[in-house]
């Protein structure tokens, strides 16, 4: 056995090295974000050094209709795709969990494909289908494309939640006279709701930041924010793009913080209830 003092010191050193390392990784991840926020308040339009504080770019932003429209399009595409993908994906996950049937492994294989193949391949493949089927390129085609790559992520996330699901609860409800639809909405869905929620959040996250697949599915009738920014980057970004990004960041930061606090409180309440023997 080593002397406890030596072991304790080694532990302490290990802990501080871990902290410093994690800190450096976060620095790497957050430096660009700090730059975005800082330069959105910069008086100079050249993003090199911080020259002075201004809110001018936020005012400019309200006049930049092209950028705001791209942002609105992004919300439409991501919102719609998330809703469709969550509905189709959740049903599929439950159906595949409940029933064993021929062709199940084929559906599984088709679901794995968009997850593992490079996005660019899916992008060009979808573009080809849209052109054969004469589907006009625009918001509609982008919703189809985004939903396609979001469905598998919803299925896998919901399935992970179903893995711990007790089928006898459903059977009990059916024995007591509930029909299938009632069981689905009254029992199954509420139990797996956290899984559905995290699947939907994952789908929305992937969709809102997608650039590769959108790049191929986009058309004259509408473009999304990532594509608009990509377009502007070639000409040089004005700080009003930074201002919009800073606003989006603030909203998501508050949203994530809020949902985490709610989740944490919920977990604490559950633990307390368990201690008291209520559950």
């Amino acid at each position: 056995m080593k002397a406890p003092g030596k072991r304790g010191r080694r532990e302490r050193i290990k802990n501080s090295v871990s902290r410093i390392f994690a800190g450096l990784v976060y620095l790497f991840l957050y430096i660009p974000i700090a730059v975005v926020v800082l330069f959105s308040f910069n008086t100079s339009r050249r993003n090199i050094v911080f020259e002075g504080f201004t809110l001018n770019w936020y005012k400019e932003l309200t006049k930049n209709t092209a950028l705001l429209e791209a942002f609105r399009n992004t919300l439409i595409v991501s919102g719609t795709s998330t809703v469709i993908a969550t509905a189709v994906g959740t049903l599929a996950a439950i159906g595949m969990f409940r029933h064993k049937f021929k062709g199940r492994s084929l559906i599984d294989a088709l679901l794995y494909i968009p997850v593992v193949i490079p996005e660019i391949v899916l992008g060009i493949a979808l573009l080809s289908v849209f052109s054969i089927a004469r589907i006009p390129l625009g918001l509609g085609s982008m919703i189809l494309a985004h939903t396609t790559f979001c469905i598998p992520f919803v299925v896998f996330t919901v399935r992970a939640r179903l893995a711990g699901f007790d089928k006898s609860i459903e059977e009990a409800a059916m024995d007591l006279g509930a029909n299938r639809v009632k069981v689905l909405f009254g029992i199954t869905l509420p139990i797996i709701a956290p899984g559905i929620a995290s699947g939907a959040i994952l789908a929305f996250t992937l969709s809102i930041d997608d650039i590769v697949i959108s790049y191929f599915a986009t058309g004259p009738s509408g473009t999304t924010l990532p594509l608009k920014i990509m377009e502007q980057v070639r000409a040089g970004v004005k700080p009003d793009v930074y201002a919009l990004s800073a606003v989006i960041m603030l909203v998501t930061f508050l949203g994530v913080l809020g949902s985490q606090i709610i989740a944490y409180r919920g977990a604490k309440k559950m633990a307390l209830a368990k201690d008291k023997g209520d559950l």
Partner: peptide, 21 residues
Amino acid sequence: VALMLPFWTNCVIRLYAWRTI
């Protein structure tokens, strides 16, 4: 959460920020 949070901001804009740096 801190690891995933940056990914809620558009990756093009974050890469562009690297260019600024």
